[in-house]
C-alpha cells in the first residue's frame, strides 16, 4: 500500500489536504459549469428533430452520470471502510448518499421535463427510467438505515453492506438501454466510439460532465470536512482549530 493511502486514514491529514484542494476544485467547477451552460444553452446548434428542447441534455446527462458515479464512490468507500476499518472512508460514504440522492432526483426531474415535449408524457415505465428510480430508492434506503442506527461505526458498516448489495443495480442502469428495446435513447458517450452528435454539440456536454464531477468533489469535500469536525470534536486538534477560527 502506498503511503498516501495510510495518510488518508487520518482525519486530521484528510481535513488539511481537502482544505488545500477545495479552492482549485471550486474555481474549476464554477468556470466549467458557466462555460458549459452558456455554450450549451445559447450557442450549440439546435437538434434537427427535437429543436431547442434537446438542450436540457446539458443538465440531464451530467446529473444522471453523477447519480451513478456517486453510488459507485459510496459503495467503494463503504467497502474500504469495511475492509480496512478506515474512519475517513466511512465518512466519505456517509457524505456521498445525500448528494447522490439529490442528483438522482435532478436526473429524473430533467428527464421528465425532456420527456414531455419529445415522448408526449412526463413519465414512461421503461427500463432506464425504472432502474434510475430504483437507484433513488437505494439512496433513500441507505440514508434511512444510516439515520436509524445510533452507533456511528455500526451505522457506517451496515450502510456499507447495503450499498454493496445495491451495487447490482448499477450495471442494470448502464446497460438497460442496450439490453432492452426502450423508448430512451442509447448512451450519449461511449469510450470506444465517436459520439453520434457533431462536436459543437458534444463538447459543451463534455465540459458540463467534467464540471459536475468537480462540483461533486467540492460538495463532497465540504460535507466530509463538516463530518470530520463533528466526529473528531473531542480531539485536541479540532479544539485548537476552533479556537484559532474564533481568533
Amino acid at each position: 500500500m502506498p503511503r498516501w493511502f495510510y495518510q488518508l486514514a487520518s482525519p486530521r491529514w484528510c481535513y488539511q489536504i481537502t482544505g488545500r484542494l477545495l479552492p482549485g476544485f471550486a474555481i474549476a467547477a464554477l468556470l466549467l459549469l458557466m462555460i458549459g451552460t452558456v455554450w450549451g444553452l445559447a450557442f450549440a446548434p439546435p437538434d434537427y428533430q427535437q429543436g431547442n428542447s434537446f438542450r436540457i441534455i446539458y443538465l440531464h446527462v451530467p446529473t444522471a452520470y453523477m447519480a451513478q458515479s456517486i453510488y459507485l464512490t459510496m459503495a467503494i468507500a463503504g467497502a474500504i471502510g469495511l475492509i480496512w476499518k478506515m474512519k475517513v472512508a466511512d465518512m466519505v460514504a456517509k457524505s456521498c448518499a445525500p448528494i447522490g440522492a439529490a442528483l438522482a432526483v435532478l436526473a429524473l426531474a430533467t428527464g421528465a421535463i425532456w420527456g414531455k415535449p419529445t415522448w408526449g408524457s412526463w413519465w414512461v415505465w421503461d427500463a432506464r427510467l425504472t432502474s434510475m428510480l430504483i437507484l433513488l430508492f437505494l439512496y433513500l434506503g441507505v440514508i434511512a438505515l444510516n439515520s436509524a442506527i445510533e452507533s456511528e461505526s455500526t451505522a457506517a458498516q451496515s450502510t456499507a453492506v447495503l450499498a454493496l448489495v445495491g451495487l447490482v443495480n448499477i450495471p442494470i442502469i448502464k446497460y438497460s438501454v442496450d439490453w432492452w428495446n426502450t423508448l430512451h435513447q442509447p448512451a450519449t458517450f461511449k469510450v470506444t466510439e465517436k459520439p453520434a452528435m457533431p462536436p459543437e454539440m458534444w463538447i459543451p456536454l463534455l465540459i458540463m460532465v467534467i464540471g459536475f464531477y468537480c462540483f461533486f468533489a467540492v460538495v463532497l469535500m465540504l460535507r466530509l470536512r463538516n463530518e470530520i469536525l463533528h466526529r473528531e470534536r473531542r480531539t485536541s486538534w479540532v479544539r485548537e482549530l476552533l479556537l484559532q477560527m474564533r481568533g
Binding site: F137, G141, A144, L145
Partner: peptide, 25 residues
Amino acid sequence: IGAALTVGLRKGGVLVSLLVIPLYI
C-alpha cells in the same frame, strides 16, 4: 439481508421494507 441489517434496531418494520423493496423490483 434487510432483516439482518435491522435486527439490532428496536423498530425495524418499515425500515426493512425501505431497504428491501428496491432490490425486489
